[in-house]
Write a protein that binds this DNA or RNA. Sequence first.
DNA 1: ACTCCTTTGAAGAAC
DNA 2: GTTCTTCAAAGGAGT
Length: 419
Amino acid sequence: MPQLDSGGGGAGGGDDLGAPDELLAFQDEGEEQDDKSRDSAAGPERDLAELKSSLVNESEGAAGGAGVPGAGAGARGEAEVGAEALGREHTSQRLFPDKLPESLEDGLKAPECASGMYKDTVYSAFNLLMHYPPPSGAGQHPQPQPPLHNKASQPAHSVPQLSPLYEHFSSPHPTPAPADISQKQGVHRPLQTPDLSGFYSLTSGSMGQLPHTVSWPSPPLYPLSPSCGYRQHFPAPTAAPGAPYPRFTHPSLMLGSGVPGHPAAIPHPAIVPPSGKQELQPYDRSLKTQAESKVEKEAKKPTIKKPLNAFMLYMKEMRAKVIAECTLKESAAINQILGRRWHALSREEQAKYYELARKERQLHMQLYPGWSARDNYGKKKRRSREKHQESSTGGKRNAFGTYPEKAAAPAPFLPMTVL
DNA sequence: ACTCCTTTGAAGAAC
DNA sequence: GTTCTTCAAAGGAGT
């Protein structure tokens, strides 16, 4: 179990919800980090960085090239020239990871590439918002608010919404919890732990007081493939002059009256109609017979989604950035890039997401005590077994998410002592 | 309208 | 205990 500080006693207190898989991840990352700390002469570190770079570019090459059949036209257009060549290079890189083509290496280390990745990495307040919005309780505004999670209301390149856990995680001063967060959704909720109470604490008013940016610690520079080798600036109509990063005003920050104690009436994001569509309006519903409506009610019983894991949280935050930087729109390609970036993160940075995910799970468990991931089994159509087996045994990763290359060289256990 | 793609992590099922 | 499967997000592409 990674020795994650729970943020000033935040999530500690005997909470043992940490996933065992986190250990594996941290073992891998930990080895790298320890190498870094042991040898600042940049020998092993450089090798590792290059290895990571090769991995990243391997996937990005695939994303822009044949690896992703439907890769976005933009990505293809920019990366196509080098993608195939890169792909060939990568083959040799895998075999000889310590030998990175000089030209590629230079390209990867180009300042403009690095700057495009993490230089502006920011945890904007709204960026961390509302994955688990505060359930409306006492003092709730009587007028229903428009749903926040309506995709149509969210511009394609808007920054994604994340949990207030993120806020809590990032903010040293979480606001106190509202008196009652458990009066919605008809779900019995046991007592809240003091730790969790803060995660529902962001009223519309208090959120408005949050700083617009919360910075990560300086992350490692991340090399960009040619497909992401340039920087596309964010359109920033609300950017303040001289601000290092555009200021955004997220709609959710302006919900309700803006008065503390008036949380907006936002449905829990983990609860969605099976179809993902809006429920019928009362007028329409009245046209249905009772039997029909009963059947529909059964069919439309809201689905409680799984809590997001660390990587999902990371993806949710970074997706918009990758889209902007790489002019990619296809999620498959973006996810490949994000997967590589995830591996390129330092373990301290990953630890933040693991910790956040752990709290998400804890919160989810408290919100839905009887819920099981099994409840959602079968609600998606299964993929063809052949394809899935191919992907899991075809040299990518096994069921534990480890890659064959890594599995061949098990890393020694290094206790997690970050934070 | 629905499924696939693609990623990692978590959890349940199957052996 | 180990291995396999499913689902979580995302949105373009294909059926």
